[in-house]
Structures are given as C-alpha cells and as structure tokens.
C-alpha cells in the first residue's frame, strides 16, 4: 500500500494543516509517512503546497514529480500543477474558487467539489481544508475516518480542540460528496 498526494492552494487555506492531519492519522495507524512542505519565502496569500507520502513499507522520496492524487484549492495551483497529475490519477478540485473550463485531461479522474460553499454552509469557510481531506480519504482510503478524528487532537493546538467537532463535520461533508458522486 502506497499513497502520495500533493496539496496546493494559497497560504491561509490550511494546506499545511491538511497535510499534517493526514500524516498524523497515518502515524496513528502505524504506517510510514513523510510530510514535505514547500519551503520558500511564501507567506499568507502566497503559494502553499505540501506532499504527503503514506506507505506500509519504505516511504522513499518525500517529493513526487507526478502525484497520484492532487488536491487543488485555488486557480493558480490548477494552472501550475494540474498537468502533473499521474495518468490514471485523481485531481480533486475546489470549484468554489477554480474554473475548470480549460482543464481537459481525459486520462485522470476529476472530482469537482465547491469546497468553500460546503464549508460555509457548515458555518466557516476556513474549514475548506477539512472538506478537502474528507473527500481525499473517501476517494482513496489512505487512512480511516476514525484515525483522522483521532489525529485532529495531534494536528490542532490544544486551544483549538473545541473546534474538533466542527472539523469532523466538515471532513464528513467532504467524504459524503465523494460517496454521492460514486453512487
């Protein structure tokens, strides 16, 4: 078993938290995992990205040229990285902020979700990253929903633990959308 995912958006969308959360869940499950943040001079509003690799065996490279799954939270990310998704892979796109009209890759599965709208309906647009993680996990089964819930305690600082129930709802909402599309 081996899962790699590239998550990108702009700073402030919770890209790094999403990657951390997946990684903590993998650690809880006793799997090997690497979380590699793009390390640059970026700050809020700039580009943010990270790569997470989860494996039963050796992780190998923490960086991937053509990820099997890409989570795209803003337009700039799709324009820059959309072409890199591995043939046969999956691209999960936040259509609240991304116009996919010009993105015509027939060799991959494209999952379109209005993540900001879904998060807003749940009360806070900042949970867009949790919607994305929920969708990713429902699609790939990289980690279990139970581990994700457990991992929120590790990924969030103590003072934000009161938001865990809301975040769990956002994860579930993202997962539900994917499951509905499957059905």
């Amino acid at each position: 078993m081996r899962h790699d995912v590239f998550i990108s958006g702009f700073g402030g969308q919770g890209v790094l938290l999403a990657g951390n959360l997946l990684s903590y869940a993998a650690v809880i499950e006793g799997k090997n995992v690497s979380f590699f943040p793009a390390y640059g001079v970026e700050k809020r509003g700039g580009a943010a990205m990270c790569t997470v690799v989860i494996a039963d065996g050796e992780v190998g490279s923490p960086v991937i040229g053509s990820p099997s799954v890409s989570i795209v939270l803003n337009q700039a990310s799709l324009d820059k990285y959309g072409s890199r998704v591995r043939p046969g892979g999956v691209c999960i796109i936040n259509t609240s902020l991304v116009d996919t009209a010009g993105f015509d890759r027939e060799d991959i599965e494209i999952i379109r979700l209005p993540m900001n709208d879904i998060a807003m309906q749940l009360g806070d647009a900042r949970m867009v990253n949790m919607v994305a993680v929920g969708a990713y996990v429902a699609k790939t089964g990289a980690v279990s929903p139970a581990s994700l819930t457990e991992a929120l305690k590790d990924a969030l600082p103590e003072r934000n633990h009161r938001f865990i129930p809301a975040n769990v709802k956002a994860i579930e909402a993202g997962a539900e959308q994917v499951n509905n599309q499957k059905a």
Binding site: N20, V33, S34, F36, P37, Y39, P62
Partner: peptide, 10 residues
C-alpha cells in the same frame, strides 16, 4: 539540507 530538515516523519 532543507528536505531532511524541514520534512516531518515518524
């Protein structure tokens, strides 16, 4: 380097 320094693993 920053790959090994900045990445997180178990």
């Amino acid at each position: 380097d920053s790959v090994v320094g900045q990445m997180k693993e178990a």
